[in-house]
């Protein structure tokens, strides 16, 4: 019974990791840009939800479109102001640029809102849970997981089926060719960053109420997202999804049976091992 509970925790937690990773892999796969500020965009969406809740009493679900919209916009702004300048620069430049951006966003958040830990107190889901035999399923966690899975599906469908999605696919394979096909690759880049923002915007909103809101809130999620993207293969949406679940399970099972202090160390260990034997990730790219 305990085992099932632990596995369930791993899957629920991992699903949200997946969504965050999907946002990162889109950008990484398309532009070869490692966005260190990815987790911090999620933090911004959490603050958005928090302030809408505190000042206007909006339930997080009501805030979802707003916070996702704000992070989408943030993604576009980041693209136009920072990323655009380093897209064709040597790899290190992009790393430094987004790293600096991450520091800036965190410090700015701390300056505006203090480093205090906030929580979204009461949402329609808070405190509720489902009991099946001995297994506890917290409703906020369940909805967060389901929401994340749904969002991943929507993104995958968007990329595969829509005209813009095909334009993104083409640009990912060759920017020059895509341009020759009449694809405005500049717009494609901006749209992809917006999508990346929507991913973390939704993830952040789903997490509010379960996770504290503070300037460093995106740190661990961002870090795990890198591991998950590398595991799943750069640019591979379903790869990121499965890898996210895998990391969630590693964290849960490893934490429970080996020691909670090793939770993340194990996730990183798995990452290192996989890279040794399959450098392109579990699912290639």
């Amino acid at each position: 019974m305990m085992f099932l509970q632990v596995v369930l925790t791993g899957v629920l937690v991992g699903s949200v990791y997946s969504l965050v990773a999907v946002g990162l892999t889109l950008v990484w796969g398309l532009m070869d840009i490692i966005n260190f500020a990815h987790g911090d965009m999620m933090m911004i969406s959490m603050y958005t939800v928090f302030w809408l809740y505190t000042l206007l009493k909006f339930d997080p679900f009501v805030s979802l479109p707003i916070s996702a919209g704000i992070t989408a916009l943030l993604g576009i702004v980041i693209y136009k102001l920072v990323i655009k300048r380093v897209v064709n620069a040597p790899g290190l430049m992009a790393l430094l640029a987004t790293f600096g951006l991450s520091l800036f966003i965190r410090n700015f958040a701390q300056f505006l809102w203090t480093p205090n830990y906030r929580f979204v107190g009461e949402s329609i889901l808070s405190g509720k849970r489902i009991l099946i035999a001995d297994i506890v399923i917290g409703l906020p966690q369940l909805i967060a997981a389901l929401g994340s899975i749904l969002m991943t599906l929507l993104i995958a469908l968007f990329i595969k089926r829509t005209k813009t999605g095909k334009a993104i696919q083409a640009t990912a394979q060759s920017r020059d060719i895509a341009e020759l096909m009449g694809v405005n690759t500049e717009k494609v880049y901006a749209v992809t960053f917006a999508l990346s923002g929507i991913c973390v915007g939704v993830a952040g909103t789903l997490l509010s109420g379960i996770f504290p809101v503070y300037p460093e809130a995106g740190a661990m999620y961002g870090l795990l997202a890198f591991v998950i993207v590398a595991l799943g293969g750069f640019g591979n949406i379903w790869g990121a999804f499965y890898a996210g679940i895998l990391i969630g399970l590693t964290e849960a099972l490893g934490g429970f049976y080996l020691g909670t202090q090793f939770k993340y160390a194990l996730a990183f260990l798995i990452y290192l091992l996989v890279l040794q034997f399959r450098p392109k990730g579990l699912f290639g790219w």
Partner: peptide, 8 residues
């Protein structure tokens, strides 16, 4: 910085 304390 743990993302959750479920397992704990």
């Amino acid at each position: 910085g743990a993302t959750n304390v479920d397992i704990e």
